[in-house]
């Protein structure tokens, strides 16, 4: 009888450990699954947010490009009454010689009419005010990489 009793005593902790281990792993797996599921939705939300921000970035970048177009700069300079100085004068550093004849920039105001077509030109920002322009918005814009799924609210065309 003694050997039987010894075998039972020896296997009980092992079984307990195995059962507890199994239960523990199952619980851990369950927790991880819950956490992962939660993260998946967070990730989806973040991706949606990124798409929105990318779109904002594109809108802003387009406005910056248009506002800094030659046509806009030219028109703005004209509105400000700027004139072209056709009288360049240079100071040569090595001998302090003055090259050219200093005269006031008395040129006529630059031509105000734009003669170079630009069908996408905008003349003022329509999008954002200071509150909505973060400090980092000056960074280069990337086109939304997932713009095929254009929005979370408007579904994609069923024809695609």
């Amino acid at each position: 009888m003694k050997p039987v009793i010894r075998r039972t005593r020896a296997s009980s902790p092992v079984v307990m450990i195995l059962v507890l281990g199994f239960v523990g792993i199952s619980l851990l797996h369950l927790l991880l699954t819950i956490a992962t599921s939660q993260s998946v939705y967070e990730l989806a939300d973040l991706k949606r947010e990124k798409r929105e921000l990318d779109t904002s970035s594109q809108i802003l970048a387009e406005q910056v490009l248009s506002l800094s177009s030659n046509q806009n700069l030219y028109s703005t300079a004209s509105r400000l009454g700027m004139v072209v100085n056709t009288n360049p004068v240079f100071l040569r550093l090595n001998d302090q010689a003055i090259l050219g004849e200093p005269r006031p920039a008395a040129g006529t105001t630059i031509q105000s009419t734009n003669l170079v077509a630009n069908s996408v030109m905008i003349v003022e920002s329509t999008q954002l005010n200071q509150e909505t322009v973060p400090a980092s918005s000056s960074e280069p814009t990337q086109i939304p990489s997932e713009s095929q799924t254009s929005s979370s609210i408007i579904p994609l065309s069923p024809t695609r």
Binding site: L65, S68, S69, V116, A117, V120, T126, I154, R160
Partner: peptide, 29 residues
Amino acid sequence: DTHRRIMDLEIPWIFSDAHQNRLYPNGAV
């Protein structure tokens, strides 16, 4: 910008397709 404004109307029977397009910000320059 226009697309976003339409999207903000949240009309369930409106949908859209996105296309890559070329923009020439300086026009004919």
